Amino acid sequence: MACNNLMVLYSGGTIGMQMTAEGLAPASGLEALLRARQAEQHDGLPHWRFRELQPLLDSANMTQANWLALADAVRQAVDEDGCDGVLLLHGTDTLAYSAAALSFLLLGLPVPLLLTGAMLPVSSSGSDAWGNLFGALRRLQAGIAPGVYLYFHDRLLHGARASKLSSDAFDAFAELPRLRQGAHASAWPASLSYRQPRQPVRLAVLPLHPGFDASLLRALLENGVRGVVLECYGSGTGPADDPLLLEVLREAHARGVVLLAISQCLHGHIDFAVYAAGSQLAACGLLSGGGMTREAALGKLFALLGAGLGQADVEHWLSLDLCGERRDDTAS
């Protein structure tokens, strides 16, 4: 769908930062700079409105509460302001995390949402900010299917499949080449609609590593954590010869904690059946995340648990593709 009535939401990030005595920090005033730049060099862009979200954030400080506030701002732009497309300006450190979280918080959104940012502020010489900003506006104007996307360095990426791979290159984001396959959910319960509120949830992401201490995992799980993304080796293996680890996982799952496995490998996906070490983890209640990225796994787990679903329902929807996170051929 071509967008002619856009909302630009500014949440902070490098794109609008200014130098302070302590380094770059979020700053107001981006709308005026954007309109002045458009008047100088860019004609024929669609009508857009601008909303500065408060407080402006360095995205390194992004929290679940901020994700919920971003989702509320998008809903307001669409349902109350009548916008047919939304551009969200966001810091790059957690840009992929927010794109993934919003992909699941805004299931069924009837318009496209693009997230972008910059590696250098608009005030810096040679900044990538203007290319990303005006490129995203033109991409929305040209037409795009409803859904959540990340736009960066002339590339349109799926919101639930993108990751940041570089700390300084202009082409910092990409979709990881992971195997994605599985059944697609043809419909969702009303509780997962983009109009439904969510609540913050205590979650954790943990990578397995040689010498992994299961007693630390137990302490974490006994501290009110409702869901864990466990980053396993390869196709879903871990220290299955550690009886304490298996016991901790079984106990947590029996208490209702959702345990989701993803691969540490950039090209990886979970297949517990390949190795005995993987099948033993699965037998303790660890659920396969397929080829989902860390960002997608965390965002999806948050959206499902935050909707108030119980363990069995969360595991059911985790196993299905909701918006293209588990299937490359799924329309967003």
Rank of each mutant, 00 (worst) to 15 (best):
residue 95 L to A: 15
residue 101 A to D: 01
residue 62 M to F: 06
residue 52 E to L: 05
residue 69 A to T: 03
residue 92 T to H: 14
residue 46 P to A: 15
residue 78 V to Y: 04
residue 51 R to P: 04
residue 69 A to H: 00
residue 94 T to N: 09
residue 60 A to C: 06
residue 62 M to S: 07
residue 74 V to D: 00
residue 57 L to H: 05
residue 101 A to Q: 01
residue 83 C to R: 15
residue 70 L to R: 03
residue 63 T to I: 02
residue 73 A to Y: 02
residue 90 H to Q: 15
residue 99 A to H: 01
residue 61 N to P: 03
residue 55 P to V: 03
residue 62 M to K: 01
residue 84 D to Q: 09
residue 81 D to R: 08
residue 56 L to I: 02
residue 67 W to N: 08
residue 75 R to Q: 07
residue 82 G to C: 12
residue 58 D to F: 03
residue 49 R to Q: 14
residue 82 G to R: 09
residue 51 R to C: 10
residue 70 L to Q: 05
residue 95 L to D: 09
residue 66 N to C: 04
residue 55 P to L: 05
residue 78 V to F: 09
residue 71 A to W: 00
residue 70 L to V: 06
residue 46 P to S: 13
residue 56 L to Y: 00
residue 54 Q to N: 09
residue 56 L to D: 02
residue 102 L to M: 12
residue 60 A to T: 14
residue 84 D to Y: 07
residue 46 P to N: 08
residue 88 L to W: 04
residue 56 L to S: 01
residue 80 E to S: 13
residue 89 L to S: 12
residue 50 F to V: 04
residue 69 A to V: 00
residue 106 L to K: 11
residue 63 T to Q: 05
residue 74 V to R: 01
residue 97 Y to E: 09
residue 45 L to H: 06
residue 90 H to L: 07
residue 49 R to Y: 11
residue 96 A to E: 09
residue 61 N to F: 09
residue 76 Q to M: 11
residue 63 T to V: 02
residue 89 L to R: 08
residue 91 G to K: 12
residue 70 L to E: 02
residue 101 A to S: 09
residue 89 L to C: 15
residue 51 R to M: 07
residue 93 D to K: 07
residue 52 E to T: 11
residue 78 V to K: 05
residue 62 M to C: 11
residue 67 W to R: 08
residue 96 A to Y: 12
residue 58 D to N: 09
residue 74 V to I: 15
residue 73 A to F: 03
residue 91 G to F: 03
residue 104 F to I: 13
residue 97 Y to D: 10
residue 99 A to C: 15
residue 47 H to W: 11
residue 45 L to K: 04
residue 63 T to F: 00
residue 94 T to L: 06
residue 58 D to H: 05
residue 86 V to T: 08
residue 89 L to P: 08
residue 78 V to L: 08
residue 56 L to E: 00
residue 60 A to P: 01
residue 101 A to I: 00
residue 86 V to R: 05
residue 94 T to D: 01
residue 53 L to H: 03
residue 54 Q to A: 14
residue 46 P to I: 11
residue 95 L to S: 14
residue 98 S to M: 05
residue 75 R to N: 04
residue 75 R to L: 03
residue 72 D to F: 01
residue 94 T to M: 10
residue 91 G to R: 10
residue 54 Q to P: 01
residue 83 C to L: 05
residue 88 L to Q: 07
residue 55 P to I: 04
residue 106 L to S: 12
residue 92 T to Y: 14
residue 95 L to H: 14
residue 58 D to A: 06
residue 102 L to S: 04
residue 77 A to E: 03
residue 68 L to R: 00
residue 46 P to Q: 05
residue 52 E to A: 11
residue 64 Q to A: 07
residue 92 T to N: 14
residue 65 A to V: 01
residue 45 L to F: 10
residue 85 G to Y: 03
residue 88 L to M: 14
residue 105 L to C: 06
residue 60 A to Y: 05
residue 94 T to Y: 06
residue 87 L to W: 08
residue 54 Q to R: 13
residue 95 L to G: 13
residue 81 D to A: 15
residue 102 L to A: 13
residue 59 S to P: 13
residue 90 H to Y: 15
residue 84 D to P: 04
residue 62 M to A: 11
residue 61 N to K: 12
residue 74 V to M: 00
residue 75 R to V: 02
residue 49 R to M: 11
residue 84 D to T: 07
residue 81 D to N: 13
residue 87 L to S: 10
residue 54 Q to T: 14
residue 73 A to V: 04
residue 86 V to H: 07
residue 74 V to Q: 03
